[in-house]
Structure formats: structure tokens, C-alpha cells
Design a protein around this nucleic acid. Structure first.
Ligand SMILES: NC(=O)c1ccc[n+]([C@@H]2O[C@H](COP(=O)([O-])OP(=O)(O)OC[C@H]3O[C@@H](n4cnc5c(N)ncnc54)[C@H](O)[C@@H]3O)[C@@H](O)[C@H]2O)c1
Ligand SMILES: NC(=O)c1ccc[n+]([C@@H]2O[C@H](COP(=O)([O-])OP(=O)(O)OC[C@H]3O[C@@H](n4cnc5c(N)ncnc54)[C@H](O)[C@@H]3O)[C@@H](O)[C@H]2O)c1
Lengths: 207, 207
DNA sequence: TAATATTTGTGAAAGATTGCACAAAGTCTG
DNA sequence: CAGACTTTGTGCAATCTTTCACAAATATTA
């Protein structure tokens, strides 16, 4: 199969979100042009993105929303669920754990770890905070496949290494540091300061 | 001047973060190769990115950390500060408002708005939550230039419109919807579900 | 059923970004 | 201070992504 751009994957989730809404509203078909309009993308982009995975449309009519919904769910692995651990239960970690929206995407937040002994044993939502020392056991017992790093920058690399040593190969990193990881590990950085700073750069440099 | 890729801007903030750390540790010079190593980028990428803005290095020696730090701060508008309003003071909004790390990047969180009358008047950190009805007044009085949308998806477009009507042209959107905005408005989406889902897609599709 | 209108799927073109490779500039050593 | 070594800055090539544009497929209309 031809290599699929990462941007395409990200957009497929956007299409799926929109299509799900359309199907819910009993709209049966949609053209690439309309779908593009709703997602602020071009019709060609929509068709090319979908084209990487097969032929889902009907010439002259467009895409059947229910069919496309099912197809996208299959492609994107929505039938599977993944177990997620949050390391660092501060402001951000707590917000993530409490967020109910992840469940419907097959993301099960089932573990929370913190180094602060005062927090260990407390509950956030349904989850009891465990000691960072328990990490290897927790990862293996709870079959964690995704680790979220929500500790301060200083501790992030160390936490990443503990997670990787325990076998976690997917990390979502909120700490503002460039993590060092081997090739087989996939890291996504969410650097909120940088997002905002990039905005302010454009603010400062717009004519 | 030649068009600067958006990725370059984003990376300049990464270089600045690293260089600041180096300067703090009294390391005086660094080569593009070393800087690349520390940020997981190639030496060529580092040089090309910097090359958009001038000649900061010395052949045979590399870059002076203090000089480069100052140059980057100037380029990135770090001398300026921007006033930020958060709309939607729930789990996520509260975490953002309480986060102290933004200040050192020239981002002043000085307003918080919510539609929930039970929340209005309460404090989050230093900031008192105001009613969403006050938005136009708040934006103008407090000279807000960046708006953060942290309300549920259903309300996001409406909030965006209120912010834009009040003159805000930069939005950071956490709601999982594709916002519709005119050309002059810059939106950055932070879609945490999508970030995680993209990770899980790669998990599902790795060999 | 035939003529017209839509809309897909996809090569090929255009555009954007990244990586290569090397001359030129500067450092360092003895 | 000469020669060896290091490192920058940058055209150019390679790669990756998006857009264009149109034949082919299907729908619609009369
Ligand atoms: N809160 C935000 O809005 C925000 C915004 C931008 C970036 N961030 C980044 O996200 C990360 C978390 O931010 P926060 O505001 O939630 O911080 P926080 O200080 O509220 O929470 C951090 C938590 O991590 C725990 N911790 C520290 N070191 C640890 C370790 N080695 N192992 C396990 N747990 C450890 C602490 O006990 C604490 O509970 C930081 O890196 C921060 O820079 C946060
Ligand atoms: N919390 C997370 O970890 C997380 C993760 C991913 C995405 N998100 C997204 O971020 C957004 C906020 O999430 P949250 O968990 O903080 O939600 P929340 O329910 O905790 O808070 C939402 C807040 O917005 C207020 N609000 C609702 N409609 C409003 C309106 N029209 N004007 C002003 N205020 C309004 C509510 O009163 C509430 O205080 C949502 O769109 C959510 O999908 C959050």
C-alpha cells in the first residue's frame, strides 16, 4: 500500500466526526464538496484522503454516510479499545482523567500515577491514584498501551523511561521538553505554550 | 522576505527553550549539530530554520548561546505581552488559568468567562469568573487579543462568534469541532481526542 | 432511453518542506 | 602563521503534500 500521510489520518478523524453527526441527523448521502465545506477542507483533499483506503463513493451521488461511517471506523480501529495511564495527577492530569469524551473513542483511562505520597490513595473520578513506584506492575496488570506524561518538565524524561521500560510504546507528552526515545516508540507532543506562542507570533507579525 | 514555513516558527520556540537552558548552564556556544541532537532535529534543519532570519552563527565555532537567545526572543516577539481570555471555566479552562508557565512566555491570562451563573463571581487563582454576557466589555476593557475556547462542542461556534464580534482575531480552540471563521481570524485547534486517536491508530497499524 | 448534470477517483502539475553536499569562513594547534 | 579541522550558510535535489483537471461512472430528468 502507498504511504499514507500522517495528516490524512488526522483528517480522517475529522471526517468521521462530521459523518457521525450527519448520520445522526438522518442525512443519507454527502458529496466530497459538502463534506469539505463542513470541515474547512477542499473537496479534492477529502477525495484524496479517502482514496488511500478504497472506493467509498458513488459517482454522481457522493458518499453514503452510514457506509462511510462504518468504513472509517474500521480503518481507524474504532472497534478496538486502548488502556491509558496518566502519570502526574496535577491540574492537567486531573482534567484529562475526568473528561468523559475519551471513552467514546475507545480510550479507557484506567490508571493514574503520581510521585506525591499525599496524593496516592486519593481518587480522581473513578480512578485511585497509585504510587509511581507501582508503575511497572500497573502497566503490566492493566495492560496499558498508552502513557500520558503530565508531570513538570524536569521529570518528563524520567517518566518516559519508566513507561518505556515497562513496555509502553505510545506516549502523549504535555511537558515542554524534547523527549529522547528509541525508534520503536511513538511520541506525540502537546505543547500548549508553543501553540499559544505561535498564535502570538502571528499576531505580532501580521500586517 | 521569503515565506517562512509555519513549522519553522514552531521549531524556533523549541530552539529558544533549549538555548535558554544552555545559557542558564553557562554553556557559551553550541553547533547546529548539537542543538539538533538535543531537540531531535537534523543539523541542516536547524541551520535552515535560523537562516530565514539572518546570520547568527560563526563558521568553525557555532552559535553563541546568549546572542542566539536574544535574537530568537526578538524574532519571536518575546518582548511583547498578550492578554488572554478563557471562555468556559470547567476542568480544562481551570487547569489553563492556574498554570503558571504561560506568564514567562508573555501570555497574561486576565479574564475568565462562563455561562454558568453559579460559577460567575467565583475565583480561579487570581481571576474572577465573569458572565459570558460581559464578553464585549471585558474584551475591550482588558484589551484581550487571544481567546481560548474551552466550552463543550455545541457552544464553541457561538463563543467564537462572540469573541470575533468583540474584535478578537486569535483563537485557541479545545472543542472538537471545525470552527467557521473569516480569513483574518487565526484559529489553532488543540484536539486532544484526535491526538490520542492518532496514536492509537499507529498502535493498531504497526507491524 | 437518451441527453444532461453530478460527482468520483486519480494521474499529473504545482507547491511546500526537508535533506544533501560543499564552498567559504572561521577556529585551533604547533 | 600555515595547515588541519570545524562548522556555517545555501543552492539544488529529493521528498512529501496539496491542488488541478478531467475521463469515467452514475444519477436525474423528460
Ligand atoms: N496546566 C496547564 O494548563 C498546562 C499548560 C501547558 C503545559 N502544561 C504542562 O503539563 C505538565 C503538567 O502540568 P500541571 O499544571 O498539571 O502540573 P502540576 O504541577 O499541577 O502537576 C504535576 C503533577 O506531577 C506530579 N509529579 C511530579 N514529578 C513526578 C514524577 N517524577 N513522577 C510522577 N509524578 C510526578 C506532581 O506530584 C503533580 O501532582 C507540565 O509539564 C506543564 O508544563 C500544563
Ligand atoms: N477536559 C479534558 O481533558 C478535555 C479533553 C479533550 C477535549 N476537551 C474539550 O475541551 C472543552 C472543555 O472541556 P472541559 O472538560 O473543561 O468541559 P467542562 O464541562 O468541565 O467545562 C465547560 C465549561 O464551559 C461552560 N460553558 C458551556 N457553554 C458555554 C457558553 N456557551 N459560554 C460560556 N461558557 C460555557 C460550562 O458552564 C462549563 O463551566 C470541551 O469542548 C471538551 O470537548 C476537554
Amino acid at each position: 500500500m502507498k504511504k499514507v500521510p500522517e495528516g490524512t489520518i488526522s483528517r480522517l478523524f475529522i471526517y468521521l466526526r462530521e459523518i457521525t453527526e450527519l448520520a445522526r441527523m438522518n442525512i443519507r448521502t454527502i458529496s466530497s464538496a459538502e463534506l469539505g465545506e463542513r470541515t474547512n477542507l477542499s473537496d479534492a483533499q477529502v477525495r484524496k484522503d479517502l482514496g488511500y483506503f478504497g472506493h467509498f463513493g458513488v459517482s454522481g451521488a457522493g458518499y453514503d454516510t452510514n457506509e462511510l461511517k462504518q468504513a472509517l471506523e474500521k480503518i481507524l480501529g474504532k472497534d478496538k479499545t486502548w488502556n491509558v495511564a496518566v502519570v502526574g495527577v496535577g491540574q492537567l492530569g486531573s482534567a484529562l482523567i475526568s473528561y468523559s469524551g475519551f471513552k467514546k473513542h475507545g480510550l479507557q483511562f484506567i490508571a493514574a500515577l503520581d510521585a506525591d505520597t499525599k496524593k496516592v490513595g486519593k481518587k480522581v473520578g473513578e480512578i485511585t491514584i497509585e504510587s509511581i513506584g507501582e508503575l511497572p506492575k500497573v502497566v503490566s496488570n492493566k495492560k496499558i498501551t498508552i502513557g500520558i506524561i503530565a508531570v513538570p518538565a524536569e521529570g518528563a524524561q524520567e517518566v518516559a523511561e519508566k513507561l518505556m521500560a515497562a513496555g509502553v510504546e505510545c506516549l502523549l507528552n504535555f511537558a515542554p521538553v524534547s523527549l529522547n526515545v528509541p525508534e520503536n516508540v511513538k511520541v506525540k507532543d502537546v505543547d500548549l505554550s508553543r501553540e499559544l506562542e505561535t498564535l502570538s507570533y502571528f499576531l505580532a507579525n501580521k500586517k
